[in-house]
């Protein structure tokens, strides 16, 4: 292993940010290792989405440091740069290109040159088509390949968005509430899907659905009021007094 690869993949230290006096993130520290899948839980307003905003460059922290792969300071980059560095993000509300076909959605996400000229004079290749078809299989959308994204159900849109992340082939996936609004069967499917993905990628999942978190069976971090309340296995976190107090309830 090279020294770089010994470093944690994502490293947040003492991060704070406030909006008009309200501290959304307060001295937050978090480490995610390579190949790890991490679940993040916490009550509404705990700063889960804001944390993702900070990691992906949408929001600049007031203080603290955010490092990716050891030495890349993420606070210096914007969304497009960070995406190209290898961090993909799924939004809380599924966001796909509604007027494009499922295939085109994946093709636009596909990991290749993001320049203007490259996109103007782009030609489809066989290997690219093959790779996209593989992803379609992974996210169970092969039979919807030529449908417009707007014709998909809510759950299918969530999967398409995850598929777009896969096509982007990032080192780290940030997945915000992937099972919100899904049926129980879809939730189970999604858990399987994420476990599959985590074999080759690092993943951070934010979710409220405790059953789903249990299905994932990974290390859990509980956030509250902008900082880490508890961290460890789900059972450990779920039995923590502070977590019960502020989130799970008695």
């Amino acid at each position: 292993m090279s020294p770089k690869e010994k470093q944690p993949l994502l490293y947040l230290n003492g991060v704070s940010v406030s909006f008009d006096g309200f501290k959304a993130i307060n001295n937050l520290s978090l480490v995610v290792e390579r190949g790890e899948m991490r679940a993040i839980i916490g009550p509404n307003g705990a700063g889960k989405t804001t944390m993702m905003d900070i990691i992906t460059g949408k929001t600049r922290p007031d203080e603290g440091e955010v490092f990716f792969e050891g030495d890349t300071d993420l606070t210096k980059y914007d969304e497009a740069d960070i995406a190209c560095l290898g961090i993909g993000r799924k939004f809380q509300k599924p966001t796909v290109f509604e007027n494009h076909s499922v295939y085109d959605n994946l093709a636009l996400a596909f990991d290749e040159d993001r320049g203007i000229l490259a996109n103007l004079f782009h030609n489809e290749t066989r290997s690219r088509r093959g790779r996209i078809n593989e992803i379609l299989d992974t996210v169970r959308l092969s039979h919807r390949k030529d449908f417009l994204a707007s014709e998909l159900s809510h759950g299918q849109k969530q999967w398409l968005e995850i598929g777009m992340l896969l096509a982007q082939d990032p080192k780290l996936l940030l997945v915000d509430e992937p099972v919100a609004g899904m049926t129980d069967a879809e939730t189970v499917e999604t858990a399987n899907l994420l476990r599959e993905i985590s074999k080759n990628h690092s993943v951070i999942v934010v979710e409220h659905d405790m059953g789903f978190i249990r299905d994932l069976d990974v290390k859990v971090t509980c956030l509250a009021e902008g900082s880490v309340l508890s961290e460890g296995s789900l059972d450990h976190v779920a039995s923590d007094e502070k977590v019960i107090e502020s989130y799970l309830g008695r």
């Binding site: 966001t95 796909v96 007027n99 494009h100 636009l108 996400a109």
Partner: peptide, 17 residues
């Protein structure tokens, strides 16, 4: 296609890099 994608979901396109 990307122009249309930007039209419909600008932030998605941005987070794709």
């Amino acid at each position: 296609k990307l122009l249309v994608a930007i039209r419909d979901a600008e932030s998605r396109a941005r987070f794709l890099g």
